[in-house]
Design a protein around this nucleic acid. Sequence first.
DNA 1: ATGTAGGCGCTACGCCGACAA
DNA 2: TTGTCGGCGTAGCGCCTACAT
Lengths: 408, 408
Amino acid sequence: NERLPSVGPSVGSMAQPAEKVEKRSLNSELWHACAGPLVLLPPVGSRVVYFPQGHTEQVAASMQKEVDAHIPNYPNLPSRLVCLLDNVTLHADIETDEVYAQMTLIPVPPTNEKDAHMSPDIEMRSRQPTEYFCKTLTASDTSTHGGFSIPRRAAEKVFPPLDYAQIPPAQELKARDLHDQEWHFRHIYRGQPRRHLLTTGWSVFVSAKRLQAGDAVLFTRDNKGQLQLGIRRQNRQQRVMPSSVLSSDSMHIGVLAAANYAAATSSRFTIFYNPRQSPSEFVIPVAKYQKAICHLQVSVGMRFRMVFETEESSVRRYMGTITGMGDLDPIRWPNSHWRSLKVGWDESTADEETDSMLKKSSFWSGENSTDALGRLTFRTPSLDSWMRPKQPGLPMQENEHYRALEAA
Amino acid sequence: NERLPSVGPSVGSMAQPAEKVEKRSLNSELWHACAGPLVLLPPVGSRVVYFPQGHTEQVAASMQKEVDAHIPNYPNLPSRLVCLLDNVTLHADIETDEVYAQMTLIPVPPTNEKDAHMSPDIEMRSRQPTEYFCKTLTASDTSTHGGFSIPRRAAEKVFPPLDYAQIPPAQELKARDLHDQEWHFRHIYRGQPRRHLLTTGWSVFVSAKRLQAGDAVLFTRDNKGQLQLGIRRQNRQQRVMPSSVLSSDSMHIGVLAAANYAAATSSRFTIFYNPRQSPSEFVIPVAKYQKAICHLQVSVGMRFRMVFETEESSVRRYMGTITGMGDLDPIRWPNSHWRSLKVGWDESTADEETDSMLKKSSFWSGENSTDALGRLTFRTPSLDSWMRPKQPGLPMQENEHYRALEAA
DNA sequence: ATGTAGGCGCTACGCCGACAA
DNA sequence: TTGTCGGCGTAGCGCCTACAT
């Protein structure tokens, strides 16, 4: 718990009208609940590997625009940069509540002593709150006709116990969101058969957050017994960045030039990580990277496991076989380990789960299924790959095997 | 009219799910009506001067964050770049309807023949629609209690004539916004005394556009008699860019690096101009620049005129005296003409108009009044400058005198 | 166990003059 | 000329149970 990102004030000197800009780092437990169980943040003060290639992928995803070819090369910028993770602050978009993390990195010269004095197994798994539930909203939940139907176990696990002597049993619930705004709900247990419902206060929450059927709402109870709530929007609703500030090209150039300048001067630079929008992590602990690259010799034919997120925010493993290795972009990023593996998924594990994954994986993105290259992006496999796991194979991002690579 | 920006398909190859991204250039007349009478766009194919310094100012305004000191220098990037204006497309933010223009520029080597074969007075004034009105919404207009009260002359000028034989006279109005979305309104002439009102359909428009008292709505009638409508939001509501994609530093670096790379390779680059958010224009015709710099010898003590926008979208001139000249940022941008003039405004013209300007100028920004430097930004003079026009003086952006400099 | 629909009270949306300003 | 208000009718919000899955 002490290794989690700091929850102190952020670095930057923000502008004056700061109401609309999140200044401080947010409640870490709730942030991680909204981000999902797969999102792990390296601890502040540790050494990390930063992939500019992956960073540009996130920018492209935000802009909904592929990176164009005619941006300058930075020959001195390597495909990965070892950095000191100077600071991490957790944030949420004011309008959409989309979670993101701001990281400040300081490039450090690569120590040739390969794995000197690094803790072999840094505890990275973000502590998901134990008293927690998450439900995808139905049409009835979001309609103006009624309230919110709470799954029974969920209500019994995280809500304060009702006095069932009352008729009907009911209570007032107060929960705070990521912006520390408090919401009030009437929690009642009624109907035939009996069920838990949120009535009064629910509709204002739905309209204020602009929730639609398919979006998910989660409730947590912290160690002081206080309720908190967050949302996870469906992928299609992902905020499309208004391109009215910088052109896509300038953004990509900015990412590369900033990293290049910081590397050249060993100075601090700042990046944003959008875990639910980005196709993949591009800042990972040095320890995990070295463990995967140096300690494990990956080769074609090896067995492979990868973790996915189900709708209930549990994790599920899928198996496959490495069918290829190579650079994703040999021209621009030669000899990069970024997404360098192709994996063919097992018929057995993939096939029977395909239907449910299609519906349940909250990370599923329809756009990715149209990917002409048929590439597998992190936690968002293309439709073809799931339907025909026996085909030649699919490239997979490299950093995935830090997390899931295990010889079977 | 033929010299206006092209209204063809845009350049970039946008990503697939293009519904949320404006692809084509919008209706030029309506766009200019929303942008206001002071916004002039150089014609496509002409030569322009691009100020990176002004571009970074717009980025800083969008991010609500000052540019930090620790971004790299680009010694080869001059403070102004002569470019060919390759293309201009007009756009509006999908969520806020904020108008912006996308320009692609190609740096060209500066021709030393100072003002060779250039049309001495390019018709730049954007043709504001003649059949047009704009009204700032009152509390009654935006409340859920009623409809929209139309100023009498406005209704008679742009709306189809009512049949006053009916009791009450009423008709159905259809108007399209910048996104070509059609809105329906009931236009009725009733009340004691009689007045023009929009009733049914008005409230859905207000809530859909999230209009508040202080925002302005405008209606135009094109040459085919079709009604169009647009909005101009109050300044305080300016969209604050979510900083969840790129850090402010990376954005500034991206602007400079993109311009620098384009200048070095004589290749195309793309910028966005937000006329209602940016403090100033940073792409201006070469002809205007040369006229101001070469033909007119500006000096301290000269009389000065500047145009401001009133709420009714008319223009108003204010007079002053040049009290100083110098670089705004001598370190980073030495010898730049950007905002190099200080102007002290006349007591007579400023004083009696101060109160009305404070209320009426839709460009007035409260934030600017807190500017510690007391600097005058384009069309957004600081509060102090208006209240005390006799004080030492205020720097003014350079490009302003292309438009308004006239010895008095 | 929980999604949806019918029933229905009651809030507040929205149309109308009456007043000022 | 036009901003705001009191007046009211009614659409639809939202609380309830009955069913179906």
